[in-house]
């Protein structure tokens, strides 16, 4: 694997993890969505669209997505997708250290299994 591919995979993993963490922080600040009433949902949607963390999250997810498209121009998808499945572990680390979520050993075990499963599926 050449240097540029490794760099792009690193960018994809960090951008996606940062996007997930920021969107979660934004949604937690907006508050729990507990209604199906159209007017209430519109109010919540307005709050979400004005949330700075949500904007930043979308920005990072877009960086991840376009980096993914770019790296596919020269690298095999069967290499890129399994390599980027490590994003699950980094997002959980973000959840633990940035969002202060309590990540139990059961969640860690499940996340590692998911990560290995995603890698196997795409090989």
């Amino acid at each position: 694997m050449d240097f540029l591919t490794v760099l792009m995979i690193t960018v994809i993993v960090f951008a996606n993890s940062a996007g997930d963490v920021l969107i979660t922080r934004g949604m937690k600040r907006v508050g729990e969505i507990s209604t199906l009433h159209p007017r209430e949902i519109l109010i919540v949607a307005g709050k979400v669209l004005l949330n700075r963390d949500f904007h930043l999250g979308i920005f990072f997810l877009a960086i991840g997505f376009f980096s993914f498209l770019a790296v596919l121009a020269w690298a095999d998808m069967s290499l890129v997708v399994p390599a980027t499945s490590i994003v699950y572990v980094f997002s959980i680390l973000g959840a633990k250290f940035v969002l202060r979520e309590e990540v139990t050993p059961l969640r860690w075990a499940g996340t590692v299994l998911v990560c290995a499963g995603v890698a196997l599926i795409c090989l």
Binding site: D20, M27, G31, E32, I33, I92, G94, A95, R107, V114
Partner: peptide, 13 residues
């Protein structure tokens, strides 16, 4: 929407 009430470390996996 699910991230507004549940943990990321639950929803993502």
């Amino acid at each position: 929407a699910s991230l507004s009430w549940a943990d990321l470390s639950y929803v993502l996996p």
